[in-house]
Design a protein around this nucleic acid. Structure first.
Lengths: 213, 213
DNA sequence: AAAACCCTACGTCTAAAAGCGTATGGGATA
DNA sequence: TATCCCATACGCTTTTAGACGTAGGGTTTT
């Protein structure tokens, strides 16, 4: 295997640096470049094309899904591995759609990472075992052929405010809308996210990065 | 400075290993021991007393606050530094109460960590700048001298169910209580956590580790 | 023994959320 | 052009949550 440079995109510096130290000794890693978020990554990649990217999902400014979509428009054969704390369906389905070749949980070992790299740079995929379990499960309970998610901009905005503790009335005032409009957005949010109440909406928002804990 | 062993307590293996790689070269670090959660840590510390502990807060089985309280009962002079993703008041106040000597955010640099270690092992404290800001702010808005938090066992249980999306009625059935009792617990939860509605409760629960994302 | 705290439980009232349906104008898209 | 999706908005009903208050029986702490 030829050696190549690796990009680490994650907003937590300690994690980036630590992972960098783990990767540096690997024989096929020639260089490591760090980015704190998707936007910084898109800037740094110009004239500096990596062989592999480890991409966090939840990041400020620009998250990993957006960055993945954008960078693959320009470099369609780039190997991207998503990094996440959570084996959450919403995450890996979106990242797979975005074009990521692998999905690793942050509680993996460095041996797993090494195996992942070998697979991914040779054109294959790699998914943490927990993710594979999740994928199989989600295939089994696929009663509805309809896709549920993908919120509209307004829905995300309303959801974000809900997580901040605002009531529909308050959100309406904030966004200059009728209270009944916000009611409707909330109704659609419950439907799309498959939640049955506010608690479910908040959990969804955090998992999908719309709200931060 | 004499050299000493360092414990890393965090449920994310990659983070542990990475931080370990960063710490290993430091001259005063003689050995690194990893634990995946508070319980494992308490087992491993027997006959293996470290000079310093980096303790994650959100962990399964036993979280960082509980582990800190317990280990300090036995080794009151142990230096413990909390590690967290979030500069959240609930976190650092609890960890400070528990007896931690420092609080670092996971987006710190290894230089910060080194400074932190120097301070803490010499008996001083260390807090990330964001934390210090938060502490100052919280002092400024201290209208109420009353302590708000510390939930009872029942309250935590109810809160946990709320995060799972259960209504009060359903929780009552689940725990064999009157619906009105659960109403009351929920009311007290709002009061103690300073939330104004369900969304706030869920956010609190996640930050404090009562619910997992 | 007294005080403090916890868990349980009830009553009443208002506000908010949730579950339905309908509808219109605008923009993108097929 | 016709179709689809989005954002906007309203009506109606039921369920749930939130804001007060009170109170007994139990345990733990002082």
């Amino acid at each position: 295997m030829e050696s190549f440079s690796v990009f680490l995109v994650d907003d937590h510096k300690l994690f980036r640096e630590g992972l960098g130290m783990l990767l540096k000794p690997l024989p096929f890693v020639s260089e490591i470049v760090e980015s704190a978020n998707g936007e910084e990554f898109l800037r740094q990649i110009e004239g500096h094309k990596p062989g592999l990217v480890f991409m966090d999902i939840n990041m400020p400014v620009m998250n990993g899904m957006e960055a993945t979509v954008k960078v693959l428009q320009k470099y369609p054969d780039l190997a991207i591995v998503a990094l996440s704390m959570f084996a959450e369906e919403e995450y890996y389905t979106r990242m797979i759609e975005a074009g990521a070749r692998g999905f690793m949980l942050k509680n993996s070992s460095i041996q797993d990472v090494e195996e992942c790299i070998r697979n991914v740079v040779s054109g294959h995929n790699y998914f943490s075992p927990e993710i594979l379990d999740g994928i199989l499960k989600s295939i089994n309970r696929r009663q509805v052929p309809v896709r549920k998610n993908e919120l509209t901009g307004r829905e995300e905005e309303v959801l974000y405010r809900i997580c901040q503790g605002y009531s529909n009335q308050e959100i309406a005032a904030l966004l200059n809308l009728s209270k009944r409009t916000v009611d409707k957005h909330r109704e659609n949010l419950l439907l799309k996210t498959g939640s049955k109440n506010t608690a479910g909406l908040v959990m969804f928002a955090i998992r999908s990065g719309i709200a931060e804990v």
